[in-house]
Nucleic acid binder design. Structure first.
Length: 717
DNA sequence: GCGTGACATTTTTTT
DNA sequence: AATGTCACGC
């Protein structure tokens, strides 16, 4: 009964879901039921017999979104979702490359390099080539390489006119050659390689074009040049592309996302077939008003205004704290109060611009005994002990991987130092072989290491995946090493967790959960699939998921989520908008979109907080309130009272909110003041006392100056 | 070869 | 603040 599927959709949503077999662009605002439309569209297509699951290709950016999509589709349709290709760009590219590894020129069990791996590979290469790493910073080289790959360019396509860029291009070329030799691929390589595979291989391209009648893309505004081209390659004459996106929520320009793709897509495919979803089902009126007003300041927009049938709801609460600590304790008070009113912790989110800001908040939450869960930060599969373990596993199936070899040849320490490794590298270089091959003919300690790997290989050969992992952790000496380390308990626990992750992976692979790293039709050893899985899904496996805990994450990580109450913290100039953004073209507009995303996460209650002072990079910094605060209409804001009223309230218990030093002069550090000539500023330091007292003031427009308190006619601002 | 500590460097966002 | 790099002494 298709009607059942369409029952609860509004007219625009329904129109989008039931579009004929044509390409279309759905401009879906925040909270307008974007994911719902996408998944219902898939279910509807299948249920009405227009396409079989086999003919569906659905692409997302995050694993979370892919999983969510599958769950929703399964809930709507009692079908096996197995034949569908649903996954992230990188996951699907990986799947394609594993299936056609021979044609794409990769070893069947190629390894995926994450960012860290890529950087250390580059460093290693530059060392071997004796490149001056001062002049050519490895990070810049990485950026150069990825930037080009994401634009679909190889080293030979990289434009180079000056010496610097020519050298960069050479490094790019040498890097790719090394990756090829070692059988590894970085993230952009997955996409570029699979793009080239289909581009060059016509029969293969035709096969997939014929197969995928419906190609659906989520978060289309985040696609980069290469991803868009990749999609176009899959689209044959009989395929329809269904792109869902919101240009106002494009927040990944820094990694190559090209909003222009939306306009391009409209021209090339949708051709006026555009549906706007503007009714928001998530937030109350004031919150939407604020979001609309903010985003209206951006010049580069396709244009769209969200509305809601709900009432205006509560005003947006704005709070100015003395310090980051003060900000944290304010948030905690409010969180606790909301919880007493019955809002679960898990329905509240604490958002910040950069990960570094979570530290203070976490500390305060911990002291206050509030359960919380941090998303992002260092991920499970990126921890060093996990990296070591994965490197051992990698050597078992692919010992030519020099990166993996170097990572563990002397970890735990077994007396193989820099000198020895240099000799080994020389020998390998002369023979044109891998380090591993050189090690096999070596003697002494290196030979001992080679024997260790060989024995691991034999011992784990017939073991199920989790047991193999477990055995490796013990036999490699990793476990003993961390047992001997008094701070190694956490790491040991993580290694244990790795065994669990392997067991879980084994189980899920057995159930053939679609959308996971490898295609079911590819007979790849479990170990290799597990390693690919580890690289592609860095792992949100931390903290107990079932517990009712306050949610902490960056604004980026919050995209796609919603909460009853949202706290956006650190709303200060140079933090949010981040100072880096000022140096980038359209950087401020991207920051504003980020703020827009943050605001629209809230359903009912929204807090915006900023602090006069904040510990940053080990020292106190004073910031002005974020310009975004002034871009919101006053009519929807409620400025919460500061100190006096707050500490008078009985609930604001013993939390020590000591005003900063210097109050005796009538002024204090962190205070906003106005100067007749220099305008408004913030006091950032004191010097001397009595009539000699001087203050350092950071002016909004006139820079930072020392002024004598007796002469500078200051007034509180 | 290895471990220690001083020193420097860094600090956006992430598939 | 936290992490990486380097030089030194064992």
């Amino acid at each position: 009964m298709p009607d059942l599927l369409l029952e609860h959709l509004n007219p625009e949503q329904r129109a989008a879901v039931t579009l004929p077999h044509e390409s279309a662009l759905i401009l879906a605002g925040a909270g307008s039921g974007k994911t719902r439309v996408l998944t219902t569209r898939i279910a509807w297509l299948i249920q009405t017999g227009q396409v079989s699951p086999h003919g569906i290709l659905a692409v997302t950016f995050t694993n979370k979104a892919a999983k969510e999509m599958l769950v929703r589709i399964s809930a709507m349709l009692p079908i096996n979702t197995r034949g569908m290709w649903v996954g992230t760009f990188h996951g699907l590219a990986n799947r394609l490359l594993r299936a056609h590894w021979r044609e794409s020129g990769l070893p069947q069990s190629f390894q995926i390099l994450d960012n860290q791996d890529q950087l250390s590979t580059i460093k290693r290469l530059m060392k071997a080539l004796n490149v001056d790493t001062e002049k050519y910073e490895p990070k810049k080289v990485q950026h150069f390489i990825n930037g080009h790959k994401e634009a679909g360019r190889r080293a030979r396509d990289a434009e180079a006119h000056d010496e610097y860029s020519m050298h960069m291009a050479e490094l790019f070329e040498a890097y790719d050659a090394q990756c090829q030799r070692e059988g590894v691929a970085d993230f952009p390589e997955l996409l570029l390689r699979s793009y080239e595979l289909l581009y060059r291989n016509e029969p293969l391209r035709q096969h997939y074009q014929e197969r995928f009648r419906h190609i659906l893309i989520d978060e289309f505004q985040d696609t980069n040049t290469l991803q868009y081209r990749w999609l176009k390659l899959f689209a044959g004459p009989r395929s329809a592309l269904f792109a869902v996106g919101d240009d106002d929520q494009s927040i990944y320009a820094f990694r190559g996302a090209n909003t222009g793709n939306m306009a391009e897509f409209e021209r090339e495919f949708a051709r006026g077939n555009v549906i706007k979803l503007e009714q928001n089902y998530r937030s109350h009126g004031h919150i939407l008003t604020a979001a609309n007003a903010l985003i209206a300041q951006n010049a580069q927009r396709l244009g769209k205004n969200l509305w809601t049938a709900e009432g205006v709801g509560e005003p947006i609460r704005v709070f100015e704290a003395y310090s980051d600590q003060d900000e944290a304790s304010f948030v905690i008070d409010e969180v606790k109060a909301l919880h007493r009113e019955g809002v679960p912790f898990s329905d509240m989110a604490l958002l910040y611009r950069s990960n570094a800001q979570s530290r203070v908040l976490e500390h305060a939450l911990f002291s206050a005994g509030v359960a919380y869960r941090v998303y992002g930060g260092l991920r499970f599969f990126e921890r060093q002990e996990i990296k070591h373990a994965l490197a051992y596993l990698r050597l078992l199936t692919h010992p030519e991987d020099d990166g993996a070899f170097l990572r563990v040849v002397n970890f735990p320490a077994r007396g193989i130092g820099a000198r020895t490794i240099e000799q080994l590298a020389d020998a390998a270089g002369r023979a044109g072989s891998s380090l591993w091959q050189a090690a096999c003919t070596a003697s002494g300690k290196v030979a001992g290491f080679a024997r260790l790997i060989e024995s691991l290989k034999v011992a784990t050969h017939d073991l199920p995946l989790p047991e193999a992992v477990d055995h490796m952790i013990e036999a490699s000496g990793l476990a003993d090493h961390y047992r001997a380390d008094k701070d190694g308990a956490d790491r040991l626990e993580n290694l244990n967790e790795l065994v669990n992750a392997a067991a879980l992976f084994d189980e899920e692979a057995g159930l053939e959960v679609p959308g996971s790293a490898a295609a079911p039709e590819v007979p790849l050893p479990a170990l290799d699939r597990f390693l690919a899985h580890a690289a592609l899904e860095a792992g949100e496996h931390q903290a107990e998921p079932g517990r009712d805990a306050l949610q902490l994450m960056t604004v980026h990580a919050a995209k796609g989520l919603e909460f009853h109450a949202v706290f956006i913290t650190g709303l200060e100039e140079s933090l949010f908008p981040h100072e880096q953004s000022a140096h980038e073209v359209n950087g401020l507009e991207e920051e504003r979109r980020l703020m827009y995303v943050a605001i629209t996460r809230a359903r009912r209650r929204l807090y915006l907080t900023h602090a006069q002072s904040r510990m940053l990079h080990g020292q106190v910094r004073y910031g002005f309130p974020s310009r975004f605060l002034t871009e919101l209409p006053d009519s929807v804001l409620l400025h919460l009272n500061r100190r006096a009223e707050r500490s008078a309230s009985p609930s604001a218990a013993p939390a020590p909110r000591t005003p900063p030093a210097g109050s005796d002069t009538g002024y204090r550090v962190g205070q906003s003041v106005a100067h007749a000539r220099f305008g408004t500023g913030i006091i950032i330091d004191f010097e001397g006392r009595g009539p000699d007292a001087r203050v350092q003031i950071k002016f909004r427009d006139a820079g930072t100056k020392w002024l004598a308190l007796a002469y500078a006619k200051l007034s509180p601002a």
